[in-house]
Design a protein around this nucleic acid. Structure first.
Lengths: 207, 207
DNA sequence: CAATTTACATACAGACATGTATGTATGTCA
DNA sequence: TGACATACATACATGTCTGTATGTAAATTG
């Protein structure tokens, strides 16, 4: 392959990231060789090493290309300030699930993140960022819940942090279980009712 | 090391499994070499190859040593038939979380299962079994919910399968998020309230 | 008590995968 | 239009891990 223009080089970079998604999903991050990724992208390892320092950096770039659920949730929750705050939270939560259920790429990347990579060693940076974004997400959701409680939309006996932990875990648990076996149930069909059930529990907190 | 008696050989086998837990947790399954596992167990690779066919079989045996959450839940739920069936389910769910929160070994193995292994290639068998046991768990919980509904302890409008999916996802999501960052929240403290919130939502299903 | 089997340790060869060094043709810019 | 930087391809050296073959001393068996 001959020297390309800057835009073409950028396309090469993207195609390498696309290939990484496919190969990592197929073989797992650790077992996939850069040779395989290169073949899938129809380039050689030289191209990969030109654009990325090593496999860890490639994996890193691939993950950052899709927004993590954490950041998605904040964005969505923040972009609508009109309705009742509980409804905003509820709808944002459902949206995250539906987006995953409908977008094959998001789905594939979640599958990689949950079941096809090891958060150790070289990927420690990824793990740290995962944890950090999770913490940030927790704080954000917690703040939203606190707002709901202060506004009288949710019972004062509710622990906002606990509510945030439960919400996040339900969502990530649903996604993880679904991408592991998509045929075991329809995430799209059940998403709304499941989230409704959880929020009903929050609203019904006694005392 | 010299030739051991049968019981000593069994001890060797156990120590290899213990070592595998530690090393896999530390380096991830794919990145851990059998040499490292052997060193941790204070034997050579020869001993490992004597007891196990390869790394996949070793990993397999390690996972099967601790009961999967699925099977735990059935057991616990089944062993108490006296109280109101909803209470049995609820308490079993809390128990699974508390067991994980309190037992360091269970916790470590869950961490490996959720964040330190890749469910592909050699581990495909493990993935299949994981999926299968998840399906079995789903059916079992679904059956329990159906019983609750038929007995009039839960609203008839409730979809038992959906309830089972949500329950399982909440539990596995909580465990996965907690083992990833145990200091981010106390699973032990929040377990009961979180499960109560979820069941309150189930009980409050309208119509 | 000799023969055999067990439970390992040791030694070795082959397979990859990685990282780097180097080659090279083309854009880009003065 | 030359000179340099860019965007790769190719070649190679190296290390690491695996699986197996072989050695061996103790336990077990007849």
């Amino acid at each position: 392959m001959v020297r390309r223009t800057k835009e073409e080089a950028q396309e090469t970079r993207e195609s390498i990231l696309d290939a990484a998604e496919v190969v990592f999903h197929d073989k797992g991050v650790a077992h996939a060789s850069l040779e395989e990724v290169a073949a899938e992208a129809q380039v050689t390892r030289g191209a990969i090493y030109w654009h990325f320092k090593d496999k860890a950096e490639l994996f890193d770039a691939m993950m950052q290309r899709v927004a993590l659920p954490a950041e998605e949730m904040l964005e969505m929750a923040g972009s609508r300030g009109d309705a009742r705050p509980v409804e905003v939270l509820r709808r944002a939560t459902v949206e995250v699930l539906l987006r995953c259920a409908r977008d094959a790429r998001v789905q594939r990347v979640f599958d990689i993140a949950y079941h096809k990579c090891e958060y150790v060693g070289d990927a420690a940076g990824v793990r740290d960022r995962h944890v950090a974004s999770q913490q940030e997400c927790l704080r954000s959701i917690e703040g939203a819940f606190r707002g709901c409680i202060d506004g009288g939309h949710l019972p004062a006996s509710l622990n906002p942090r606990e509510a945030a932990i439960g919400t996040m875990s339900l969502v990530s648990g649903l996604i993880a279980n679904w991408v592991l076996a998509p045929k075991s149930f329809s995430l799209e069909k059940h998403a709304k009712a499941l989230v409704d059930t959880w929020f009903r529990g929050l609203e019904g907190k006694p005392k």
